[in-house]
Design a protein around this nucleic acid. Sequence first.
DNA 1: TCGAGACGCGAGCCATCGCTCGCATTCTGA
DNA 2: TCAGAATGCGAGCGATGGCTCGCGTCTCGA
Lengths: 229, 229
Amino acid sequence: MARVSKISKPKRPARARSRRPELSPRKEPSQERARQTVDAILEAAGDVLVREGFDRASTNRIADAAGVSIGSLYQYFPNKDAVVRALVERHEARMLEVMRTHLGDLAGKDVREVTRALIEGLLDAHRVKPKLQKVLLEHGGHEASSVDAAVEALVRAAVESRRIELAVNDVDVAAFLLVTAVRTACHRAVVERPDLLERPAFVDELCDLVLRYIAADAPAAPRSTTKRG
Amino acid sequence: MARVSKISKPKRPARARSRRPELSPRKEPSQERARQTVDAILEAAGDVLVREGFDRASTNRIADAAGVSIGSLYQYFPNKDAVVRALVERHEARMLEVMRTHLGDLAGKDVREVTRALIEGLLDAHRVKPKLQKVLLEHGGHEASSVDAAVEALVRAAVESRRIELAVNDVDVAAFLLVTAVRTACHRAVVERPDLLERPAFVDELCDLVLRYIAADAPAAPRSTTKRG
DNA sequence: TCGAGACGCGAGCCATCGCTCGCATTCTGA
DNA sequence: TCAGAATGCGAGCGATGGCTCGCGTCTCGA
C-alpha cells in the first residue's frame, strides 16, 4: 500500500493541556463561503451535542448535520476538541453579552441593587440555549468558564470593597459560596425547574439568600411583590 | 499514487447485532471465588477511572487492572454501563453510611445544631474517595443520586416543620435554594477546591449562609474558631 | 469419586471513531 | 482570461472500543 508511515499521533488525549496559545488553528476562513462553513459547523455541533449527547457527537456526525464534508471540518479545526472549544467560546461570549447589556454601570450603587442586577443578569444569561449549556457544563464545566471567572471577580471585588460594612469573615470562602450558590441556582432553575423562573418569588428569595448572608443586619431587598414588612 | 480499486468493504449497515431485548442482569456470583472477582472488578474500575479518566476507562482496561479476564467481567455485568452503575451505587452506599453515623438523632434539636450536623455530615461524606467522586460527578452527576434525594427530603421536612419560627416566605423555593446551594458547594469543593474541605471556616460560612437565610434574625451559629463577636 | 454446573479465560468479531489525502470545484486578482 | 489559491469533498486508514463464544478449570453435593 502506497501510503505508508503517516504521522499517527491522534489518540493522545493528553489529559491536561496547558498550552493555551493557539492550538494549531488550521486555516482561517477568508472568503464568505468559508465563513459560512465554519458557522454551519459550529451551529451543527451545538445541535448534535444537544440531540445526541456528548459521547455520540462525532466529528462525522457534526459535519453531516452541518451539510459539510468531514474534510472541510478538519480544514478549519485541528481536531474535535477544537470544535467543542470554539463552541464553548461562542456560547460564553453570547452569555457575557447578555449580562453586559443587563448590568449597566454598577459603580456607587447600593449592595441590594447590585445584587439584584447581577442575579437578574445571570438568570437572563442562562436563558441562552439552556440545553446546550447543560451538555457543555456536564462535559467540561469543571474548568472554570469565562463567565464564572467574570462573575466571581465581580462578586469578590464587591464583597471585598465593602468588607467593613458587611458581615463576612472569610472573603475567599464567601465569594466561592456566593458564586456557587447563585450560579447553580440559576442553572438548575433553567434546566430543571423552568416554572421557578416565572415566579417573582424566585429572584426575591435568591436576593434574600445573598443579602442576608453578606449583610446580615441589613433590611431585605426591595421585593417584586410586597409580602412581608 | 492512485490507491484505487481495492475490494471495497461492503460496509454493511449492520443495523443491529443479535439484539438482547432484555437487560440481562447476568449471573449472580454464588461462590466466594466469584464474589471476589466482582469485588476486584469494582475496585479496579474505581482505580482506572481515577487514574486514566472516564474516557480511557475501557472494559478491557478495567478487567486487566482487576487481574481478571474480559470474559469474566461480562459474566457479571451485562455492559460497561452496569459496571459504572454498580460502582456508583457502592460509593453512594458508603457515603450514606458516613452521613448516618454522623447525624444521629436530630429530633427536637435546635435549628443551628441540625444545620451544622447536616452540613458536616455532607462534607464528611464527600471526603470518601473524593477523586473517584470527582470523576463520577463529572460524568453522570446530572442524575439525582440517592444521597441527594435523602438530603433533599431531610431539608424539606426540616424547613417545613419549623416554618412559623423561620423567616422563609416560599418554602418550595427556599428548599430548592438551600439544597442546591449546600449540595453544590460540597460538590464543587470536592471537585475544584479540595483545600476548602480542610478549612474550618468553610463549614462556618456555609452554616452562616443557611442560618442567616432561614432564621434571619437569629444569632450566628457556634463557630469552629472564634473570630467575630 | 465423579459429573454437572459455576467460574475463568482470551482471541477475535465488528462497529465506530478521529482524522488524512488526493482530487474536484469555485473564487480572485492581475 | 486564466493560473493559482482557497475551498469542498468523501472513501478509507489505523486504532480502539464493547462484547461474544467456545473451551478449559475448579467446586461441591451426592
